[in-house]
Every structure is written in structure tokens, then in C-alpha cells.
Design a protein around this nucleic acid. Structure first.
Length: 477
RNA sequence: CGGGGUGUAGCGCAGCUGGUAGCGCACCGCGUUUGGGACGCGGGGGUCGGCGGUUCAAGUCCGCCCACCCCGACCA
């Protein structure tokens, strides 16, 4: 490492983020513009994310499948808004096997169109519905400005695609998946989110309604951390996805799609991390406990390592990492573990062996008050309790931060002031022209119209027109 | 695409008025170390972003090109 310290978050949040991703070995820049290599540590985190999501998808009746990377370009053109939204960011394959292709193929930016094509083929009867398929894959969007995890030209995600017999079922599915994302974010990643609907300008290209979970990063900017779309009959119409109902009548399907990507790793970094490095939530951390043995000579080493082996057996139910690299001081290993965000550090040296204790240090509480000496007997219990406590405290800290930085300005001047460094929760008319002016004035956009509304009505923060809903405005990633 | 910046060892940089490339970290070897980023000694590693020009001689001067980064427009 060329420098020992990261830039602090207050010095330069963006640079703190970039260096942290590289130095914690989550990811690295690939030799292709805008692309990243997810390194083993980053992928281990992603695997824990995918496992947590996948089990929730399966529990609600979804199954996984695989669809092609390449999609005929004409497919994208079938849905008007979809093609408008995605055309500018497409990568297109025009040559295959040395021959110019009859029809160019796009590298999927998302799979609604090819899904629509296949669903039209598979769905004939109301008995075939619902179709509940999820894909784990990567997609390509030729982004103009990229940033590791947050916006890369290729990113990994899951995309769920469902078809239903009724609008009500499709809406219920859309909301169910939004809630699954929110539950995942809050209970697995300890990232508090606001569930809500996107404004017309912010919604998915081709959707009737888009919903998202929105999280506040430590610089108060917002990040869309997962989305669920009610596609209505737009794609069913474009791809002719029909079924015969009980009365032998042709009906158009109602479809949904929903996705959560490696961007979420960016959220975990920017919500929980501190100036020492990452802080990973225990439920998702690749390593939950970092064991650092401390010893001077061979005799001590033998003594300590014997105790370490006992600790490892006792802690068999946790994801452990033993840092027994030679030639590195404990201090170096402590910093290294902090950079990587391991939630709990277990130090064990000759003094501990003599006393039958170990030192446990909480990553989320640097310094003395996060470090305790606990007996080796019953250590598994102590570790389990601490990990639960850390998970809980990370969520609470993030929630408190979001609440402290969310304001309810009463007039437009105050609104603009708030948007310098926080979220604004305001009455809003919902009109696109109004949103455009706000964006021009403040660089902020509507992030989400929360599902949780206070009721009643007010006047739009900018234009004074009647407003039936409150919306969150913020600068965003 | 517009504005700004940077390209010299894996990373961070120095290299002046041109004379044939160096420092710190990282890496390798040996030894001493190890409870908050250890130290000594020895070592390996470079078509100086590319192409062309000026010159006896170019990392250095000139021209063109390319790439990347930051700020906007696009976005999970």
C-alpha cells in the first residue's frame, strides 16, 4: 500500500470511496473503460447478498433460469418508451464469425424484451399463470460516467420477470418484491430504506409504475438500492403475451420486473464505512470474525496457536478468518482487518492464554470502548451476541443519521437550503415540469414518493399547486 | 459531447536551461522483530502513453493522436 491512511470522508468523500474499494480489495478497474473486476473479497460479499435474496425469491415461489446475453435489436424497438430509454446506452454486436450480421444484436441492458418474446411462446392458458422467473446475470449499459459498483458499464444483478392474469396480481407482485428488497436491505445489510414510487421522469423506461428502495449515503446523497416495476400490459402488448381465460377469451397478461444489482455493495460501503475503512454488516460479511494471534517466539507461537485452534473449533458456526501471515505485526493486521470491515476482531496472545481470555474488538466502535476481554469458555455465545448487537447498532446508527438529515422545509428557499446537505420531505404536485425546474435550481431530483404517506394534502413546495402526496427530494448517485 | 486535469517501475511521485532515468511504498532473499501500520543489509523490476518532427543527442522542445481521471448532460 502506497499510503497508510485513506482520505477522510469529510476531506473528499468520492476519493475516500474509490480508494476504499481498491484497498479493501473488493474490486479493481478492468482494462475496459467503465468496467470493473470484482475481486474475490467483493464477490464473497456479493454471494452472501445473492444467497439472502435468492432464498427470499424461492420462498415466494420464484424459480431461476438463464436467458441469452444477446438480443435482436428489433426486440428493443417493440416498446416505444423502452427503446427511447435504452437506445443511448446500448452496446451492439454487428459482426459475428467475421461476417456482418443480418440483424445487429444488442448486449442485453435488461431482459424484458427477450423475456416477453419467450413468455408469448410459453403462455397459452390461465393455467400457465403466473410465471415467476428470476435471472442472475450481468447486463451492459454504455454509461457515460462510471464509478466502481455504483455505475459500471457491465454490472451483475438479478432481474425478476413475472406474468400474471390480472392487474391486481401484478401490482401485488410488484409490491411484494419491493418489500422483499426492503426487508433484505434493512435486516441483512442494516441499510434503512424508504419504500416508494418513482416520479414519471424517474421511472423505468416502459413501466406503468416504478417503485424503489432509497437509501441515504453518509454524504447525505440518495442511492436507489433496488427497484420493482409494474409494467402493466405494455410489454404484453408489444410482445403479444396472451392467454385464454376461463371463458375462452383472449386476454393480455400483466407483467412485472424487479432488480437489485452490485450497486448495493456501493450502498453498504457508503452507509456504514468510516475513515478507517469498510464496516460490513455481520449477516453479509465474508468474514465475521478476524482472528489475530500474537506471539514473540516459537514457544509462544505454539502456545497461542494451540489456543487459536480451540477457538476455531468453538466458533465453527461463524465465518472466520485467521490472519497467521508471518512477518507482519499485529498492528498492521488490525488496520488491515479494519480496512476490510470485518465486524469483530479476536486478539489472542500469551497473556490471554495465561488468563483464559481473548480480546474482542468491535469494528463499529473503534478504540477502547469497543474492545473487551472475554473468557474463552462460552466464547461462541459472546461472539453471537456481539454480532447481533453490531448488526442492530449499524442499522440504528444509519437510521438516526437519515432522520437527522431529512428535513421538512416550509418554503422554497428553505427547500433549496436543505438540498445542499440532506433530504427534503415535502408536498409536491408530481408534475414533470415542476421537477425539471427543481433539478435546474438545486441539482436534486425527486427520489421517491414514499408509500408511507401522512394523509391530508398541501401545496407544492415549488409551484404552489395542490399536492396530494409528499415526496423525498435529494441529490443522488 | 462541453469544461478542467494527468500520463515516467505494481502504487504514489521527482527528473531544472536537452547528455541516455531516480526516490518512497509495495515485491523477492537473509537476519532481527511481533499486544495498534517494525528494522537492518542485499536484490529484482522501465519499449518514460503512441506516432512523427527538430537535434550529434529527446522523459525533457514541437506537432498530431490515444487513454484515463475530475466537473456537467445519460443512468440500476
Amino acid at each position: 500500500m502506497s499510503e497508510e491512511r485513506l482520505p477522510t470522508r469529510s476531506e473528499n468523500f468520492s476519493e475516500w470511496y474509490n480508494q476504499l474499494v481498491l484497498r479493501s480489495e473488493l474490486a479493481d478497474y478492468a482494462p475496459v473503460r467503465g468496467c470493473m473486476v470484482v475481486r474475490p473479497y467483493g464477490w464473497a460479499l456479493w454471494e452472501n447478498i445473492t444467497a439472502a435474496l435468492d432464498s427470499r425469491f424461492k420462498a415466494t415461489g420464484h424459480v431461476n433460469a438463464a436467458f441469452p446475453l444477446l438480443i435482436p435489436r428489433s426486440f428493443l424497438e417493440r416498446e416505444k418508451d423502452h427503446v427511447e430509454g435504452f437506445s443511448p446506452q446500448l452496446a451492439v454486436v454487428t459482426i459475428g464469425g467475421g461476417e456482418v450480421l443480418e440483424e445487429p444484436l444488442v448486449v442485453r441492458p435488461t431482459s424484458e424484451t427477450i423475456i416477453g418474446h419467450m413468455y408469448a411462446k410459453w403462455i397459452k392458458s390461465y393455467r400457465d399463470l403466473p410465471v415467476l422467473i428470476n435471472l442472475w446475470n450481468s447486463v451492459v449499459r454504455w454509461e457515460l460516467r462510471t464509478k466502481l459498483f455504483l455505475r459500471t458499464a457491465e454490472f451483475y444483478w438479478q432481474e425478476g420477470h413475472t406474468a400474471h392474469a390480472s392487474e391486481a396480481e401484478a401490482v401485488a407482485e410488484t409490491m411484494q418484491m419491493l418489500e422483499i428488497y426492503a426487508d433484505f436491505a434493512e435486516n441483512e445489510a442494516a441499510v434503512p430504506v424508504v419504500r416508494g414510487r418513482k416520479s414519471d421522469t424517474e421511472k423505468f423506461a416502459g413501466a406503468v409504475d416504478s417503485y424503489s428502495i432509497e437509501a441515504m449515503m453518509a454524504d447525505t446523497r440518495a442511492l436507489q438500492a433496488g427497484t420493482s416495476h409494474n409494467l402493466g400490459q405494455n410489454f404484453a402488448r408489444a410482445f403479444d403475451i396472451r392467454y385464454l381465460d376461463r371463458n375462452n377469451q383472449q386476454q393480455l397478461c400483466w407483467t412485472t420486473s424487479w432488480g437489485l444489482s452490485t450497486r448495493f455493495i456501493g450502498a453498504i460501503i457508503m452507509v456504514h464505512g468510516d475513515d478507517q475503512g469498510l464496516i460490513l454488516p455481520p449477516r453479509l460479511a465474508p468474514h465475521q470474525v478476524l482472528i489475530v494471534p500474537i506471539h514473540k517466539d516459537e514457544a509462544e507461537r505454539a502456545l497461542v496457536m494451540e489456543a487459536v485452534e480451540r477457538m476455531r473449533r468453538q466458533l465453527g458456526g461463524f465465518r472466520l478468518r485467521l490472519d497467521d501471515r508471518e512477518g507482519l505485526t499485529p498492528g498492521f493486521k488490525f488496520h488491515d482487518g479494519e480496512m476490510r470491515g470485518v465486524p469483530l476482531r479476536l486478539e489472542i496472545g500469551p497473556k490471554d492464554v495465561a488468563k483464559g481470555t481473548v480480546a474482542l474488538a468491535r469494528r463499529d466502535r473503534p478504540g477502547k470502548d469497543g474492545r473487551t476481554f472475554v473468557p474463552q469458555d462460552g466464547l461462541d455465545r459472546a461472539v453471537a451476541d456481539l454480532l447481533v448487537q453490531i448488526q442492530h447498532d449499524l442499522f440504528q446508527r444509519a437510521l438516526t443519521f437519515r432522520l437527522q438529515n431529512t428535513h421538512q422545509p416550509e418554503d422554497y428557499d428553505a427547500f433549496r437550503q436543505v438540498l445542499e446537505s440532506g433530504w427534503a420531505d415535502v408536498w409536491w404536485c408530481g408534475e414533470a415540469d415542476c421537477e425539471a425546474v427543481i433539478k435546474e435550481d438545486t441539482k436534486a431530483s425527486s427520489r421517491v414518493i414514499p408509500i408511507d404517506q401522512p394523509g391530508g394534502q398541501g401545496v407544492c413546495i415549488r409551484c404552489g399547486r395542490p399536492a396530494r402526496e409528499r415526496a423525498i427530494f435529494s441529490r443522488s448517485y
